Simulated scan of single mutants.
Amino acid sequence: MTNKKWYQSNWFIVLSLIFCLPLGLYLMWENRQWKTKQKVIITIICSSVFVTALNFFAVSSYDDFKANKEKEIAAKAEESSDEITLDDTDYQMEYESDALTDEPESDSSAELYEYESSDALSSTATREQKAALKSAETYSLIFHMSKAGIYDQLTSEFGDKFPADAAQYAVDNLDVDYNENALKSAENYAETFNMSSAEIYDQLISEYGEKFTAEQAQYAVDHLSE
């Protein structure tokens, strides 16, 4: 009987999933005693929790910025006796401008601002629709998700909890190449989990996996580097 190493124990894998997600996911997928369906479900749940936390901190940062800006406006108004107001769009544009100029951005962060859609700032879009589009851009850029995957995450009770109309607006107005998203997801499965092309294809189109279309999944496996 083969002795199992301590870091292959279930208790260590569970602790790693809680305190060090990348390590936990790696050890879980390397452990052959865990069923593939269990691994997929746990990966989706952990990713959803991580993305929700990421959005929470992003919103908190923006709210702090907006509060500080309101204080600055109030101070200027008292000095000049003129009423100065900014709407949410003005705050968002200035917030993003400051983020781009004050600190150097990584390539992936810079790409996020290139996703900006003209529809996102249109007067016909509601606040929730604009927020859903912003979240959708993040899911696509960071996690390379499919259209169906993004929609499900936006409307999920365990995700963003947007109403269906806001989520539909977001995926309809998201400027993204889903073939490339599928390819990046396939590359991640190939490099991290050493999966076969057939297994990657199944994971990409799975209802419990990435939910890409068959055409997008086929494009991905066809363009994987040797």
Rank of each mutant, 00 (worst) to 15 (best):
Y169R: 13
E116F: 15
E157W: 02
S140A: 15
R32H: 11
Q92I: 08
D160N: 11
E78T: 07
Q153N: 11
I13M: 06
S47T: 15
T52C: 13
D90I: 05
V176S: 05
I45F: 05
R32W: 04
S60P: 05
E137M: 15
I18R: 07
I200D: 09
A131C: 13
S185F: 02
D90K: 12
P163R: 08
F50W: 11
D87L: 01
T155M: 07
E111N: 08
W29V: 04
V40S: 11
T155Q: 12
A58S: 14
N31H: 07
P22H: 00
A125L: 10
K37W: 11
A167T: 05
M195W: 14
T124N: 05
Y208N: 12
K35Y: 12
A53Y: 08
D63E: 10
K39E: 00
Q33L: 13
Q153T: 10
E30Y: 09
K5C: 08
T43Y: 02
N188Y: 14
F212W: 01
L23A: 00
V40T: 15
L154K: 03
V171M: 00
V221N: 00
E105V: 15
V51W: 10
W34A: 02
T43F: 13
S106Y: 04
D90W: 03
S118Q: 15
A131F: 01
Q8M: 13
K71E: 11
N68S: 12
S196K: 05
I45G: 13
T213A: 02
I42W: 08
D82G: 15
L121N: 09
Q168F: 09
I142C: 08
F12G: 10
T43S: 14
H223W: 02
K147C: 04
F162T: 01
I13P: 01
E199P: 07
S140L: 01
Y91I: 03
I84V: 03
L204T: 03
D152P: 01
D63F: 06
D175Y: 05
A131G: 11
L141A: 07
Y26H: 03
C46H: 08
M195R: 12
A164T: 06
F162W: 08
A170P: 08
N31W: 00
Q129P: 09
E94Q: 11
S47A: 03
K147N: 00
Q8W: 00
L154Y: 12
N181D: 01
L224S: 02
W34N: 02
